[in-house]
Lab assay of single mutants.
Amino acid sequence: MEVRTIKVFTTVDNINLHTQVVDMSMTYGQQFGPTYLDGADVTKIKPHNSHEGKTFYVLPNDDTLRVEAFEYYHTTDPSFLGRYMSALNHTKKWKYPQVNGLTSIKWADNNCYLATALLTLQQIELKFNPPALQDAYYRARAGEAANFCALILAYCNKTVGELGDVRETMSYLFQHANLDSCKRVLNVVCKTCGQQQTTLKGVEAVMYMGTLSYEQFKKGVQIPCTCGKQATKYLVQQESPFVMMSAPPAQYELKHGTFTCASEYTGNYQCGHYKHITSKETLYCIDGALLTKSSEYKGPITDVFYKENSYTTTIK
């Protein structure tokens, strides 16, 4: 009895394709271990004539594949690729409408935090270190965002349907971005203890939790000093293409032309909904596939993004 075979390709990165001759009487799992086709788990399936010449994702289970996976995804987590594939199996079914010149995501599976993050990423200057993220990001900007969303979920250790947080998501993504040249110098002034300067680099240099107003941050924000008295913390120097200011959701007025974009969060910790506000020729609110415009805006804002380049204080 002759062994019926077909020729397929296996890959971990969709760049390096490895030619395989597979036995049609055995499952993919018996031949390769966990195997995925377009995100779908085909591990328990036997090869079919229609699979001839198709590319299958496999887990990096030998040295060659491990090197290829690390170079593309910059992670050695053995569960990463499987999590990416199972997320992709959902995100490829989502709709990605162009809204006001940006790629958004039609609401499904509690994905409003991903839509808000995706919209924000198209408006701030950011370059990702893992080629996987950078490639998928370019495709997302062009309207094909399924891979990018699935990668975000995998890097953030999230599953489809789980509630997510924009600030946490951005923080994970910033860790995989090139923020080497970003720098922030802060000064804390206390009447009792004097003053202390701190220099922050990388992710810490672009994120701040405690106030939404970048102007206020430049002037000074009140913080408790270690001595128990009130101290003032203010920005001395900022070198970065953008800054992200966050605070627990509270009524906040966004003035046209003073910011790049913002995240609105309605609801409580267990259950809520994100919308995205962007400042173009007027203010726009993007909620999944829905767009509304207004000249002014007041609502429960939790993150505001500002364009920056270089700032030095005039406070002496």
Results as ranks from 00 to 15, higher is better:
27 T>D: 11
307 K>P: 14
269 Y>V: 11
170 M>G: 06
292 T>N: 05
250 A>M: 15
109 D>T: 06
66 R>L: 13
213 S>M: 04
153 L>F: 05
122 Q>P: 05
117 A>Q: 05
307 K>D: 10
182 C>R: 08
109 D>I: 04
222 Q>I: 08
2 E>K: 15
269 Y>A: 12
100 N>F: 06
65 L>V: 09
257 G>C: 05
100 N>D: 09
205 A>G: 03
314 T>R: 15
250 A>W: 06
13 D>E: 05
81 L>G: 06
34 P>I: 12
102 L>M: 09
136 A>I: 06
116 T>F: 04
184 R>W: 00
5 T>M: 13
272 G>L: 00
83 R>I: 06
204 E>N: 06
312 T>K: 13
69 A>P: 03
161 G>Y: 02
36 Y>N: 04
166 V>Q: 07
71 E>S: 10
68 E>V: 06
66 R>S: 13
168 E>H: 05
85 M>L: 13
135 D>H: 13
301 I>L: 00
65 L>D: 08
138 Y>F: 14
112 C>N: 02
125 E>W: 01
296 E>T: 15
204 E>V: 02
23 D>E: 13
123 Q>Y: 03
211 T>D: 08
256 H>C: 13
61 N>I: 11
81 L>W: 02
141 R>T: 12
4 R>C: 15
74 H>Y: 02
279 S>H: 01
268 N>H: 07
188 V>F: 05
147 N>D: 15
22 V>T: 12
122 Q>A: 06
57 Y>V: 11
16 N>P: 09
210 G>M: 03
251 Q>F: 11
17 L>Q: 12
156 C>M: 07
17 L>E: 10
249 P>L: 04
97 P>T: 09
176 H>M: 10
61 N>D: 12
30 Q>C: 13
24 M>W: 07
274 Y>I: 01
248 P>F: 11
79 S>F: 09
201 K>Q: 13
91 T>L: 03
107 W>M: 06
43 T>N: 07
226 T>F: 10
182 C>N: 00
276 H>N: 06
232 T>C: 03
55 T>K: 10
1 M>I: 03
94 W>S: 07
61 N>Q: 09
308 E>H: 08
285 C>A: 06
106 K>F: 07
149 C>T: 09
12 V>M: 14
11 T>L: 06
254 L>V: 02
82 G>T: 14
267 G>A: 00
32 F>N: 13
310 S>G: 00
274 Y>C: 00
272 G>V: 01
221 V>F: 08
218 K>L: 03
37 L>M: 13
300 P>M: 14
223 I>G: 15
71 E>R: 04
158 K>W: 01
158 K>A: 09
171 S>K: 13
46 K>W: 11
160 V>P: 12
304 V>P: 03
21 V>T: 14
12 V>R: 12
30 Q>G: 12
139 R>L: 11
51 H>T: 07
226 T>A: 15
126 L>K: 10
82 G>R: 12
235 L>K: 03
60 P>H: 09
154 A>H: 03
95 K>V: 15
3 V>F: 12
172 Y>V: 15
155 Y>E: 03
128 F>S: 05
265 Y>G: 04
25 S>M: 06
312 T>N: 09
283 L>T: 03
302 T>M: 02
71 E>V: 08
236 V>N: 02
305 F>A: 01
88 L>H: 03
22 V>P: 10
163 L>R: 14
132 A>T: 03
265 Y>C: 02
139 R>I: 09
206 V>M: 03
198 T>Y: 14
183 K>L: 10
179 L>V: 09
291 L>W: 14
262 A>N: 00
42 V>C: 14
225 C>F: 04
149 C>K: 05
187 N>Q: 12
101 G>T: 05
83 R>N: 08
37 L>I: 12
143 G>L: 05
15 I>N: 14
202 G>E: 07
159 T>G: 11
164 G>H: 04
47 P>C: 07
128 F>Y: 08
193 C>H: 05
39 G>H: 08
